[in-house]
Design a protein around this nucleic acid. Structure first.
Lengths: 190, 190
DNA sequence: TTTCTTATACCGTCCAGACGGTACAGTTTC
DNA sequence: GAAACTGTACCGTCTGGACGGTATAAGAAA
């Protein structure tokens, strides 16, 4: 990967600036400069700022699907895989994490772009539901994960100390879940 | 209450636009129009856009402190109070919620303003630590709450169905905590 | 083999409009 | 009569985006 295509580089710069400096500082000039490309060059690949946004969201969806596939086959199970990556990603340089951070910033800046992000969450939730005993467990795992992403987005230090406690977290969250066969002994919603 | 001062109205409009439409659409003109005030009038009260931001963050800090005081004396306990308001606030029109949403959008747009928000989180965490048995419990409660705020900020529908499950959520999270006192049995107060 | 054509991948400049902010004179409200 | 505005006019800067030009390489045509 000595030389990623200019297009990829531009998209990467877009993400980095979004994730590190926030939407307030994202301009075509800034992206072009960071990517080592002229503004004209940038506009050759992405005809508008909106196209840049669409490119990011597209990438987010692709990377998320890849990650869900990895989660599905993770030996530790979906719950622990999800929690682990929500914690680890904060410091790791996984492409998905950077893309996610950028997307969060983007969507919170301009709520009209929220659909893709919602779709990604929804798919994660579906996968989670297939792998836990009840709805509440899935909900809590998701919420803890979203909390971690929130912290990362707010620029708080990584909570790496949680890494060693993943098993305990998962155990606690699953603690009250009904045993395998039946769903929720009191309330079920449709 | 029939007529809040123009200053308060302006700040309110600033919050509403931030929370509903996002930082991308916040301009002095938009705020002035929404508040029913001329641009000159706006600038009379807030000499610059930054002053508007500072006003919001100041209000956030004040409302947060008020809320922490309420949490401290809530009969259901800090944990349940915190979870309940993180769920309820999504739909309720409490001033704190709107201010928080606006602040989240603001901070994620311009990370340099993150300090106040961090301070509020820190104070909440401290209170939480005083009222739970161990660190992990506090951490999980906070994370679930932050997850809920994240969802609200992303514009997802309120998870009101969780309201009925607050006790179960709290029980699960506290499940593995070293038992200093009876926790799961009933509401514990301090 | 040289020339012409076409496609791709850019560069650099320019411009209209938006935005933050200033200035200030006039008007209403307390 | 002061404080709290309104309204208008204006300025400098930044930004997105349009546009025309350039370099290069690969084929097709002569």
């Amino acid at each position: 990967m000595a030389k990623p295509s200019a297009r990829e580089r531009i998209l990467g710069s877009y993400e980095v600036i979004l994730a590190d400096r926030g939407p307030a500082e994202i301009t075509l000039d800034a992206v072009a400069a960071h990517a080592g490309v002229s503004k004209g060059g940038l506009l050759y690949h992405f005809g508008s700022k909106d196209a840049l946004r669409d490119g990011l969201l597209e990438r987010l969806e692709r990377l998320t699907d890849d990650d869900l596939e990895r989660a599905r086959t993770a030996p530790e199970g979906v719950v622990r895989y999800y929690l682990r990556s929500a914690i680890t990603d904060v410091t790791s340089d996984l492409a998905l994490h950077r893309t996610t951070m950028a997307a969060i910033r983007l969507v919170l800046n301009d709520p009209t772009a929220a659909e893709v992000s919602r779709r990604c969450t929804e798919r994660t939730r579906e996968l989670m539901l297939e792998h836990v005993e009840d709805r509440l467990t899935a909900e809590l795992v998701m919420l803890v994960g979203e909390g971690l992403y929130m912290r990362a987005a707010l620029g708080e230090e990584a909570t790496e100390s949680l890494l060693a406690q993943i098993d305990e977290i998962a155990d606690r969250i699953e603690a009250g879940a009904p045993a395998k066969a039946t769903i929720a002994a009191g309330h079920r919603k449709n």
